[in-house]
Design a protein around this nucleic acid. Structure first.
Lengths: 121, 121
DNA sequence: CAGCTCGCTCACAAAAGTGTTAGTAACTCC
DNA sequence: GGAGTTACTAACACTTTTGTGAGCGAGCTG
């Protein structure tokens, strides 16, 4: 099983949240779906060009298994699938949104900023 | 270097945030410091009993290198060090707090809940 | 009937992350 | 003077995560 095990004896709430969100691409996938409502497999490939097909399929599968996304398969050829957030997935909006805002404010470029770049003195 | 590389061509803000927060234990360390203000090395060992010394030292070092924490070394024997949040680190409060709240609401136990456990119908 | 399409999956290999054990420095207490 | 203290680090092995390349099924298009 390719999943990190967070075992927090005291039931740390931050760790529980991480269980759902901490895959390398998961929060980005969720973020995209918050923006676009629906995404097909090929949409994600376009939105996140550096992800490999293997990872994309796997992260999507885990998100579906966790109940955050739902997957609709159309029985047609060539195949078509759609992913969208479930109500449970949508409940993560505060988390994703906080990440988005922090990233916009403190890290507009993709290169890591240090505190001195951001906070004067 | 033990660091994941997120290269988001479009400069996705969620990915930039992940760069700082996505270590296996980083957000938990930050969370603890938001609660306690100050932490010594041995405090973290007590707060997070399942982390290994190697990981703790490493995650702390990275957080300091990223400018999120500052480290104060007292020149005494036996040695004493204190870690606390910098202003930059404190700017992450909305992210950590959103994680905390989601974890408290939807995942009180440490076992993964599924959507059906949480959302009626 | 060859080729294209889409949404994947599999096997293999490389890379990243993690745990374990041992050890250090230097001062105090017994 | 031997043991205990704190905050680590280094070496090694192991596990987990990730990338790569290949392939598949089934119908539609030329």
């Amino acid at each position: 099983m390719e999943r990190q095990a967070y075992d927090c004896a005291a039931g740390c709430p931050v760790e529980s949240t991480l269980q759902f969100v901490a895959g390398k691409w998961k929060s980005v996938i969720l973020y995209r779906l918050f923006q676009e409502q629906v995404g097909r497999y090929s949409d994600f490939e376009r939105w996140m060009p550096t992800i490999s097909a293997r990872m994309l399929a796997r992260q999507l599968r885990e998100l579906v298994a966790d109940g955050l996304l739902e997957k609709k398969i159309y029985a047609q050829v060539p195949p078509k699938t759609e992913y969208r957030l479930t109500a449970f997935g949508r409940s993560l909006w505060p988390v994703i949104s906080a990440m988005e805002q922090w990233g916009q404010r403190y890290n507009l470029g993709q290169v890591k900023a240090t505190s001195t770049d951001v906070l004067p003195k």
